[in-house]
């Protein structure tokens, strides 16, 4: 266990620190109650990937995943954070196993919530089978933990977004908080363009990419439960709020989700663009959504987005 503080960051509180710009370690330290974080299998243990040297690639001492325990608003939580700048936050063997272990502990403890700070492009290709299995094991562990009564929150706002298997894990969480930068999806825009052509999805069209995968669309369509401005403070407030509102995963939860997703397909399945979805959702000026400041957007989402319900 260790106490690792990143250098170069002011100690004067989390306030305006950008979630997007912060490292995984900074996010964890500033999100939790001051001084409360204890890391498990930290970088000093040098549990690096056993596979990257095959590709002559550099390792990172924590394999891009920080896991540990701390408190949030005085309550005990387990927390995991991906470093999106190391190999795009991708899931490798060690990276994934840390999160699997954390979730299995939560399952056994049955009451300590888990916060997952996603920042990932999906599976790490150099260890693709291990990464794919890690994602399957994590999803299983999330569902087991939730079934045992544990709340598992996902926070998405990092530079790598939350794609591939990361998007599927996010879809297993009790609730998600997302910032505008927090893109969520399965196939990234570049992957779709490579496989299906630029006519299907122009990955260079940044406004299109943001309104199709970005946090505002996810919030409006019901893919996320809370919208955070891009600050650690905002994510902390969202996390505290969501911890109060979520319940265990049951058959009813999934029945409700089935109905929720069915309704989404029925209502929006023929929409060609996110702006059409938002207009159908009841947004008067859909074209203005991307430019809305966070406060205004949160107010808008509160009026038109699906009410928070037990359907995830």
């Amino acid at each position: 266990m260790s106490d690792l503080t990143p250098g170069g960051t002011s100690e004067s509180g989390r306030g305006g620190v950008s979630w997007y710009e912060a490292s995984a370690r900074q996010r964890v330290r500033l999100l939790l109650d001051a001084g409360s974080f204890t890391e498990f299998v930290g970088p000093e243990q040098r549990e690096t990937s056993p596979h990257l040297q095959v590709f002559d690639l550099p390792e990172q001492f924590d394999d891009g995943m920080v896991v540990g325990a701390g408190t949030l608003g005085g309550g005990a939580v387990l927390v995991a954070a991906q470093e999106g700048r190391f190999m795009g936050g991708a899931f490798g063997e060690v990276h994934g196993a840390k999160l699997t272990g954390l979730l299995r502990a939560a399952r056994d403890l049955t009451s300590t919530p888990v916060l997952i700070l996603f920042d990932t492009g999906g599976v790490r290709l150099q260890e693709a089978n291990a990464g794919e299995l890690a994602i399957a094991e994590i999803m299983r562990a999330v569902v087991e933990a939730r079934h045992a009564g544990v709340t598992v929150l996902g926070l998405v706002g990092g530079r790598s977004g939350c794609f591939g298997g990361g998007g599927l894990i996010a879809g297993c969480c009790s609730a998600l908080a997302v910032s505008e930068q927090g893109r969520i999806g399965v196939s990234g825009p570049e992957v779709i363009e490579t496989n299906r052509g630029v006519e299907e999805f122009d990955s260079k069209d940044r406004p299109l990419v943001w309104r199709t995968t970005g946090g505002k669309h996810r919030r409006l369509i019901g893919g996320a439960d809370a919208f955070a401005d891009d600050t650690v403070d905002a994510f902390r407030a969202c996390a505290l709020d969501l911890l109060r509102t979520t319940g265990p995963l049951t058959l009813d939860t999934l029945r409700n989700e089935q109905a929720r997703l069915r309704e989404r397909l029925d209502r929006f399945g023929a929409c060609a663009d996110a702006r059409d979805v938002w207009a159908k959702r009841g947004v008067d000026d859909a074209g203005a959504v991307p430019g809305l400041p966070a406060d205004d957007f949160i107010a808008l989402a509160g009026r038109v987005a699906e009410p928070s319900h037990d359907a995830r």
């Binding site: 106490d3 990143p6 250098g7 390792e59 990172q60 470093e83």
Partner: peptide
């Protein structure tokens, strides 16, 4: 007793 700074990325180091 210990600290960690930086991340491993192109042009960067830990």
């Amino acid at each position: 007793p210990l600290a960690l700074v930086g991340v491993v990325a192109s042009g960067n180091l830990e």
